[in-house]
């Protein structure tokens, strides 16, 4: 450190030289990261592009190309079962992810900011529990449990089961956001005679928001993709899209599924564009 302090002038000059020769030095910018992120998104979307291309495949098979056709879209739109399944999936995911996020947010506030208390680790363990039990085990156990307590709410059963396993997925990002976040803003707000609720609403909540958003997204995608638990706990009339797809094993997966996935994808992209435009205007 002392040696460094002695060399301030030289290293400043060196840094200036660096700035001149290389890309402009922006604090916190890592030039390789941009490339990395592009690779990352390419990795994420390459299979999705393949999937979209094959939704326009004339062949019955989802992976053997013959010629261009939009037949699968027409079939998907005329297929009541697949439409109902998609609607069920969206409903369940929306409700379960929202419920799980609210529950996880409250729990994270207490567990991260509420200090240590007896049973702290236990509560943390309990919240992570749904993550740690293999899906098929949760599925069979929940089926037996629902039957034992006589719970039969149709879609409600699925929503409850999904909420349970969504909680840890919503909780983890919120916890990551909250830990080490300093409390000076809240203290300042309280010093300014804001009551607890106002301090929470105007200070803590906005600070937590990125964690909550991330948590909600994770909960949503974990719910919309679940199959094993849904298969077991679903009552009559609550077939979801993943269950529909897994039932195809016997007859082969058709591009109809690709078509539905593409439509869902288009809808989600539409939402993203909307949110981007709204955010930019503000």
């Amino acid at each position: 450190m002392t040696a460094d302090a002695g060399n301030v002038a030289t290293s400043k000059a060196a840094a200036a030289a660096r700035r001149r020769t290389r890309a402009p030095f922006v604090t916190g910018e890592y030039p390789g990261f941009r490339f990395f992120t592009i690779v990352f998104f390419f990795f994420l979307y390459a299979p999705i592009l393949v999937l979209i291309v094959y939704s326009f495949n004339d062949n019955r098979s989802a992976t053997l190309w013959t010629e261009f056709s939009i037949d699968w879209y027409i079939r998907a739109f005329n297929n009541d079962d697949i439409r109902r399944a998609a609607l069920n999936s969206l409903t369940i995911a929306l409700v379960a992810a929202s419920a799980a996020t609210v529950i996880a947010t409250l729990a994270a506030l207490i567990l991260v900011r509420g200090g240590r208390f007896p049973g702290h680790s236990l509560a943390y363990g309990l919240i992570s529990l749904p993550l740690m039990v293999p899906e098929i085990v949760t599925a069979v156990a929940t089926l037996s449990f629902f039957a034992a307590i006589g719970l039969s709410l149709g879609l409600g059963n699925v929503i409850i089961a999904h909420t349970v396993f969504c909680i840890p997925f919503a909780y983890m990002p919120i916890q990551a956001r909250l830990s080490d976040m300093d409390t000076t803003f809240e203290q300042a707000a309280q010093d300014l005679y804001a009551n607890d609720w106002n301090a929470f609403r105007h200070v803590t909540l906005p600070l937590m928001m990125p964690g909550i958003v991330a948590g909600a997204m994770l909960a949503f995608i974990i719910s919309i993709d679940d199959v094993i638990i849904t298969l077991m706990v679903a009552g009559a009339g609550s077939t979801t899209l993943p269950v529909y797809i897994y039932g195809m094993v016997r007859m082969g997966v058709t591009p109809e599924v690709n078509a539905v996935s593409t439509v869902l994808l288009a809808i989600s992209i539409l939402f993203v564009s909307l949110s981007w435009m709204i955010n930019r205007r503000r």
Partner: peptide, 21 residues
């Protein structure tokens, strides 16, 4: 209304639990 399952084992487990319809 058509519902979907993936294996006879799933069907059996669900019928055994009694909660179907």
């Amino acid at each position: 209304t058509l519902d979907i399952y993936d294996s006879s084992e799933t069907l059996l487990a669900k019928l055994q639990s009694g909660a179907t319809g």
